[in-house]
Write a protein that binds this DNA or RNA. Sequence first.
DNA 1: TCAGCTATGATACAATATAACCTTCGTCAA
DNA 2: TTGACGAAGGTTATATTGTATCATAGCTGA
Lengths: 145, 145
Amino acid sequence: MASRKGTQHATNIMEALTEAARPLSAYDLLDRLRPTGVAAPLTVYRALDKLMASGRVHRIESLNAFVACRHGEHHHDHADTPPPRAVGFAICDGCGTVEEFSDADLFAHLNGCLAAKGFVPRSSAIEVHGRCAGCVRGGVAETQP
Amino acid sequence: MASRKGTQHATNIMEALTEAARPLSAYDLLDRLRPTGVAAPLTVYRALDKLMASGRVHRIESLNAFVACRHGEHHHDHADTPPPRAVGFAICDGCGTVEEFSDADLFAHLNGCLAAKGFVPRSSAIEVHGRCAGCVRGGVAETQP
DNA sequence: TCAGCTATGATACAATATAACCTTCGTCAA
DNA sequence: TTGACGAAGGTTATATTGTATCATAGCTGA
């Protein structure tokens, strides 16, 4: 089948992202998938597009990198309507970890601000850089961008 | 003086961004500054870094582009503490314009979410893609990324 | 079967960003 | 005055991220 390979790539990417437990760039992923026969960036980007469309992967704009979605409940491989779930990311510049958060009130408030302008949102990115609790306690300096 | 040129570049960049009234990439800016003698990307990035540090320019992460800050009141050329002002951006995928907004409640709420995790924020990016009121009324399709 | 469609693959290239190094200019102490 | 020093800027090259384009393979339906 024409689509089996693509599915396999997506599975491999999900594995790599889940194992890494931190954001990986498309080229990081490419390096990890090379042993499985992936040779071109486009292959990675196409698989990532599909994973993002189904809500299983998020892109971190400020890092040009990707993370596996941690909200395990709402993966929609077969559903007709992928989840337009709004999430935010707390990115630790000390240790590089990313914590995903989703707060209904926050997003309601954000939508309120936008509605007041007549702006119709389609997708949103909320990315906060700083230091996670562990790095604050340990006095870890900011080593990441 | 060693710093006069840099200041001039920053001024030219501010002019270009203000005239454009939409986000410009670093290389867009480079093209516009070439007539003034700027030849290398690094020159543009260095000037942008300073402008961002002083809060006069914002980076739009999801576009890899830059806009002039619209909150004219709080430019701090000489102040000791640049403004850690939190702002968000409503990016129209129809016409490419960016509206800057700043809502104290929204950011208080966001900080509350992060504080609950023990996360100490340093900088945040809130970027919403969608369609502005004008494009919604006019039925303009999404032509921008 | 075979035309048409879609997914995939390969190559090249465009766009974005930074590294490494050097020059210039101002400052300041001797 | 002058020479060491450091900060700022310039030059060159390169790293990183993302796409365009075209060719091919394999399903699908008439």
